[in-house]
Design a protein around this nucleic acid. Structure first.
Length: 544
RNA sequence: GGCCCCGUCGUCUAGAGGCCUAGGACACGGCCCUUUCAAGGCCGCGACACGGGUUCGAAUCCCGUCGGGGUCACCA
């Protein structure tokens, strides 16, 4: 007998960029499918018309592609385009007496819930019968009904593949739930069940927040005559402090910092709006209301206005890591380890190894905290071992999502050189930020006051006088090449009895404006003689 | 609060009754290397939540306590 093919699916709702939790779910689904030689399908759950956007779908697909999580269905399933399918099934359930129209308004239901809470008992929806008069009244008011599923009252239970145990719903918790909203769209519960069945999904891997939803899905599957897939609920990914890792964490941080900025700078929201070139009323709402969020462009504008650096924000979205310069396979490797371990102390794995080793039974039961340190270390190692061409391609990709970087016009050969110069780097962002001075016009180098003070002015302008000597030395050097330049400077050092640091640092500050840069002689070689001398001259002029 | 789930170093985890004096990785501390930032080398610190059982023997099995998380929508 042939083993039935494993079919998994990732079914995000298009409300924004993919975040790491979603990425891990997608990864596990993908790994299982690939490990078993099955299929991995993608479906867009856009039944919430108000929150779903086309833009978000595009972003989601882009993130998935970047990660390399390829899906097997050529045409995407959009739930919003399948309402007639759902409606036919819902109408059929109604005809069979398994679903009915319910007329309570959201306000009424909220009141009932509040009442239940006051009485310290769980709210259970009770079906109501309406008189013909009432119904006529509702119709006259234009009130729209929802459809509820008449859940057969019985215990529901399933075997969870992660917990490796049966989970049972207490029978008194069974209640009728909405399957078609007032706007005519199916609810999530109805659409997933129908689509999973129609797409032949055999294994449902999803976040633990869905565990209790499974009972509803079981009831629906039974009524619709569908087979029950294998369920596996994944542990939650948390922040280091134990809070749930959510998309809003960054927005929260930006808001906090914006509020601090307003206070310390004695500014108004209008000032901020002007500085960020944003709409003032909108910004005013955002800054006070933690339920609202800025979109990515607005967020960047505010960050720029208040001088909040990218690196000060927690990375949450897959796109954040991409813009930071992580390699996608590293993110995947790290994410896989959040909740899965192949045993035998194995950690650093290629995608291929993960596919080979992935088993449902090795998924852990307890929540995992997301530690960026370890991810950073993984990236450092991966990037050190990566093929040069792979790295150049990754750098290009990095620049494509960091279009403001002055390195954008660099040639591949130049990128390769920068990468090589800064060997031992951890993130592409480091290479980028540390190399920017090489691509900035000579007369636009910013001299950091503390660097100038410490390295050039201190001890009676010792650094500056060294710099004057070097200017002369470099002007006359026979060859302009890193090794030769270093030798020349070395012999200057022994001649003057100076430590290399006393000489290299003034040079560094003169050329790049700060005390930190890639190895200085390679930097000089990259810059060329003319540009180096021009910078030294300008620095000397500014000092004088 | 009701219901459900979980509980090994700071973090991710290995561990399926004797292989455990509990292993690895990251972080951290010290030393070394060094023209800056990194990277690298060596050494070190560090956990079975607690209390009861079961057993010749428990991190592993059972019960309780405590702690943590999830969920209680016309969002997914």
């Amino acid at each position: 007998m042939p083993v039935p093919k494993v079919v998994t699916r990732f079914a995000p709702s298009p409300t924004g960029y993919l975040h790491v939790g979603g990425a891990r779910t997608a990864l596990f689904c993908w790994l299982l499918a690939r490990h078993c030689g099955g299929e991995f399908l993608l479906r867009i759950e856009d039944t919430d018309l108000a929150r779903s956007t086309e833009q978000a779908t595009v972003q989601l697909l882009d993130d998935l592609r970047w990660l390399g999580l390829n899906w097997d269905n050529p045409q995407l399933v959009h739930q919003s385009q399948r309402t007639d399918v759902y409606n036919r099934l819902i109408d059929d359930l109604m005809a069979r007496g398994l679903a009915y129209e319910a007329w309570e308004t959201p306000q009424e239901l909220a009141a009932l819930r509040q009442e239940a809470e006051k009485q310290k008992r769980a709210f259970i929806y009770q079906r109501r019968n309406y008189s013909t008069d009432q119904l006529a009244q509702f119709a006259a008011q234009g009130r729209k009904a929802v459809v509820r599923f008449a859940t057969p009252v019985q215990p529901y239970s399933f075997h969870d593949a992660v917990l490796d145990k049966d989970i049972t719903q207490p029978i008194e918790e069974v209640q009728d739930f909405v399957i078609r909203k007032a706007d005519g769209m199916p609810t999530y519960h109805f659409a997933v069940v129908v689509d999973d069945a129609e797409m032949g999904v055999t294994h449902v891997l999803r976040g633990q927040e869905h565990t209790k939803n499974t009972f509803l899905h079981l009831a629906l599957q039974k009524a619709l005559g569908y087979a029950q897939p294998v369920y596996a609920h994944l542990p939650v990914i948390q922040n280091l402090d134990g809070s749930k890792m959510g998309k809003r964490d960054r927005d929260k941080k930006v808001r906090e910092r914006a509020q601090v900025w307003l206070k310390t700078h004695q500014k108004t929201v209008d000032d901020l709006a002007t500085a960020a070139a944003l709409d003032a009323p909108g910004l005013g709402v955002w800054i006070k209301d933690s339920k609202t969020q800025l979109d990515l462009d607005q967020q960047q504008a505010v960050m720029q206005a208040i001088h909040l650096k990218e690196s000060e924000l927690p990375e949450i979205l897959v796109n954040d890591f991409r813009r930071q310069g992580y390699l996608p396979e590293v993110l995947l490797n790290f994410l896989a380890l959040l909740g899965w371990s192949p045993g035998e102390d194995r950690e650093r794995m290629s995608i291929g190894e993960m596919v080979r080793l992935f088993e449902l039974k090795d998924i852990g039961k307890s929540n995992a905290k997301f530690s960026r340190d370890k991810l950073l270390s993984f990236n450092t190692d991966a990037v050190a071992e990566a093929d040069p061409n792979r790295l150049i391609a990754a750098f290009r990709d990095y620049l494509s999502v960091n279009p403001a970087s002055p390195l954008t016009p660099a040639t591949d050969a130049q990128l390769a050189e920068l990468l090589d110069m800064k060997k031992g780097f951890r993130l592409l962002r480091e290479v980028d930020e540390l190399s920017r001075f090489l691509f900035v016009p000579d007369d636009q180098i910013d001299y950091q006051p503390q660097a100038v003070e410490k390295v050039l002015k201190k001890e009676n302008n010792q650094g500056a006088s060294v710099l004057r000597d070097l200017r002369q030395l470099l002007e006359g050097s026979a060859t302009w090449e890193a090794g030769a330049l270093e030798q020349q400077v070395q012999s200057y050092c022994s001649e003057k009895n100076l430590a290399l640091g006393k000489v290299a640092q003034p040079l560094r500050v003169a050329v790049c404006g700060s005390t930190v840069s890639p190895p200085i002689f390679h930097s000089l070689a990259f810059l060329g003689r003319n540009r180096t001398l021009a910078r030294i001259d300008r620095c000397l002029t500014i000092l004088a």
